[in-house]
Amino acid sequence: MAFDARDKEISVDDFVRYVDTGTMGKVLEIKTEDEVDWVLIDKTNLWYKAKLVEILDEKDIKIKITPSGREVDIEELKEKADKLENMQMDSSVAEGGG
């Protein structure tokens, strides 16, 4: 049995988020080595210490699959759009050398 950062039991097919980087994905496998629990996340195909991930509730999952089968992080797209909207154009930033 593996437990997440909040001491909730992790199962295969649970959606989790790596707390250090925010990487989200589905748990493909769980293993224990040297008394440390590890989970394999599908998005990166990397193993993460179980105590460094947190199980996501369905309402927290912000990844959507497009019709082409591509994953899209909705919150990331919103943040990028906000940054572009808040960018100001200024003609005095750079001058030509001529």
Results as ranks from 00 to 15, higher is better:
residue 1 M to V: 15
residue 2 A to Q: 02
residue 3 F to Y: 15
residue 3 F to T: 04
residue 4 D to A: 00
residue 4 D to L: 01
residue 5 A to H: 05
residue 6 R to Q: 10
residue 6 R to Y: 09
residue 8 K to C: 09
residue 9 E to S: 06
residue 10 I to Y: 08
residue 10 I to C: 10
residue 11 S to K: 15
residue 11 S to M: 08
residue 11 S to C: 12
residue 11 S to Y: 14
residue 12 V to S: 02
residue 12 V to N: 03
residue 13 D to K: 15
residue 13 D to P: 00
residue 13 D to T: 11
residue 14 D to K: 00
residue 15 F to P: 00
residue 16 V to H: 07
residue 16 V to N: 06
residue 16 V to P: 04
residue 16 V to K: 09
residue 17 R to I: 15
residue 17 R to A: 12
residue 19 V to W: 02
residue 20 D to R: 12
residue 21 T to G: 10
residue 21 T to R: 06
residue 21 T to D: 08
residue 21 T to W: 03
residue 21 T to M: 05
residue 23 T to M: 13
residue 23 T to A: 11
residue 23 T to P: 06
residue 23 T to H: 09
residue 24 M to R: 15
residue 24 M to G: 02
residue 27 V to N: 03
residue 28 L to S: 12
residue 28 L to Y: 04
residue 30 I to N: 01
residue 31 K to F: 06
residue 31 K to H: 05
residue 31 K to P: 00
residue 32 T to Q: 13
residue 32 T to G: 04
residue 32 T to M: 05
residue 33 E to W: 03
residue 35 E to C: 04
residue 36 V to G: 02
residue 37 D to C: 09
residue 37 D to Q: 09
residue 37 D to R: 06
residue 39 V to E: 06
residue 40 L to E: 06
residue 40 L to W: 07
residue 41 I to L: 13
residue 41 I to K: 01
residue 41 I to H: 01
residue 42 D to I: 03
residue 42 D to Q: 03
residue 43 K to E: 14
residue 45 N to Y: 11
residue 45 N to A: 12
residue 46 L to A: 04
residue 46 L to E: 08
residue 47 W to G: 02
residue 48 Y to G: 01
residue 49 K to E: 07
residue 49 K to R: 14
residue 50 A to W: 01
residue 51 K to Y: 00
residue 51 K to F: 00
residue 51 K to T: 04
residue 52 L to G: 00
residue 52 L to P: 00
residue 52 L to A: 08
residue 53 V to C: 13
residue 53 V to R: 06
residue 54 E to Y: 02
residue 54 E to L: 11
residue 54 E to S: 09
residue 55 I to R: 11
residue 57 D to N: 12
residue 57 D to I: 00
residue 58 E to N: 08
residue 58 E to V: 09
residue 58 E to G: 01
residue 59 K to R: 12
residue 59 K to F: 06
residue 60 D to Q: 15
residue 61 I to F: 05
residue 61 I to S: 00
residue 61 I to Q: 03
residue 61 I to Y: 07
residue 62 K to R: 14
residue 63 I to Q: 07
residue 63 I to F: 07
residue 64 K to P: 02
residue 64 K to W: 05
residue 65 I to C: 01
residue 65 I to G: 02
residue 69 G to I: 06
residue 72 V to G: 07
residue 72 V to T: 13
residue 72 V to D: 10
residue 72 V to M: 13
residue 73 D to V: 15
residue 74 I to A: 15
residue 76 E to H: 12
residue 76 E to S: 14
residue 76 E to N: 13
residue 77 L to S: 10
residue 79 E to M: 12
residue 80 K to R: 15
residue 81 A to F: 10
residue 81 A to P: 00
residue 82 D to Y: 03
residue 83 K to N: 12
residue 83 K to L: 09
residue 83 K to M: 07
residue 83 K to W: 03
residue 84 L to C: 03
residue 84 L to R: 10
residue 85 E to K: 14
residue 87 M to K: 12
residue 87 M to W: 06
residue 88 Q to R: 08
residue 88 Q to M: 02
residue 89 M to E: 12
residue 89 M to P: 00
residue 89 M to L: 15
residue 89 M to Y: 12
residue 91 S to N: 08
residue 91 S to Q: 04
residue 92 S to D: 05
residue 93 V to Q: 11
residue 93 V to A: 13
residue 94 A to M: 10
residue 94 A to Y: 13
residue 94 A to T: 14
residue 97 G to Q: 07
